[in-house]
């Protein structure tokens, strides 16, 4: 059985995606181990918001090579989407997977063999074409789970590369997120009970955009619809809204949280600073 280890940089969304990708590999027969337990395959999920993304990435690759010089090193995620060629030239990197390709890791991993030339394979698509949505949630911590409900962003904030790294705003459906919450609650009946779900995404207030045949996104449901449905999920004690843009935090959402059974009175609202934002 091949051993695989993950290293995750950056946000809670990355952590939830790493967790789900890891479970997919486990289901395929890979053994999940810690980074220092001499895995056969190292997977580094990167960030482009973090300072020195490049430096951090290089350092982790070096560490991986020290731990297992024969180990296969795959770099994926946001920074891998933005700078695939740069990462491919880092000594020791064997594969680079962008925003869409990271969710194909389970298909690609069986083909991972170190090339004799040391040449890295690059799997990357133009971010404009990255429109698929992949549901995820973390299960590393028994107290709380980060449940992904949305991905990508259509806001052109002056300082931010996330739209280039993750693509257009798109979401899961209310029904799918509720199903995931039930699944988490169901897992919670075992010893590893999860008591709190934190809703996670890039711009979660923008929830409800669903891709139609790869042509355009359409607003089908709203964030309010989502939280109203989740509030009825038995077995989860608390839901927390992680971060929501002020223009999307409507009176209806605030009023609902105020009288809800499970949504806690905690809001995280980006202000950024005066000259930084371009509001839609």
């Amino acid at each position: 059985m091949k051993k695989v280890a993950f290293y995750t940089l950056g946000c809670k969304l990355n952590f939830s995606e790493t967790s789900t990708i890891g479970r997919m590999l486990e289901a395929q027969g890979y053994e999940r181990v810690e980074f220092n337990q001499r895995p056969d395959i190292f997977i580094i999920n990167t960030c482009s918001v973090t300072d020195n993304a490049d430096k951090k990435c290089r350092k982790i690759v070096r560490e991986a090579q020290k731990i297992n010089p024969d180990g296969y090193v795959a770099v994926l995620g946001c920074y891998a989407q933005l700078k695939p060629q740069e990462i491919a030239t880092i000594p020791g990197v064997d594969a680079v997977l962008g925003a869409a390709e990271k969710f194909r890791l389970h298909e690609l991993i069986d083909t991972f063999e170190k090339a004799p030339t040391g040449q890295a394979r690059v799997f990357n698509s133009n971010i404009e074409t990255v429109i698929d949505y992949h549901a995820s949630y973390s299960l590393n911590d028994r107290t709380r789970t980060f449940l992904k409900v949305q991905d990508g962003c259509d806001y052109p904030c002056s300082y931010c590369t996330i739209p280039l790294a993750r693509g257009k705003s798109r979401s899961d459906t209310v029904a799918n997120v509720v199903r995931a919450a039930h699944e988490i609650a169901w897992r919670g009946r075992s010893a590893a009970a999860v008591k709190e779900i934190v809703l996670t995404g890039v711009n979660i207030g923008d929830f409800g955009l669903v891709d139609e045949f790869g042509l355009a996104t359409r607003k089908c449901e709203s964030f309010l619809d989502l939280i109203q449905a989740l509030d009825e999920v038995e077995g989860i004690e608390r839901f927390r809204i992680s971060s929501i843009e002020p223009n999307l935090l409507t009176d209806e959402i605030i009023t609902f949280v105020a009288q809800s059974k499970r949504f806690v009175p905690h809001f995280h609202v980006p202000l950024q600073s005066e000259p930084t934002r371009c509001w839609p």
Binding site: P246, I254, P265, F267, H268
Partner: peptide, 30 residues
């Protein structure tokens, strides 16, 4: 104004709500 109004609305309905703020310093033009 929008920001202040959102915060006021939260506090009006949930006086004990916790409100966190993301803020960037040193953006060009600041």
């Amino acid at each position: 104004e929008l920001y202040a109004e959102r915060v006021a609305k939260i506090k009006e309905l949930m006086p004990h709500a916790c409100i966190g703020v993301d803020v960037i310093v040193g953006h060009p033009g600041e």
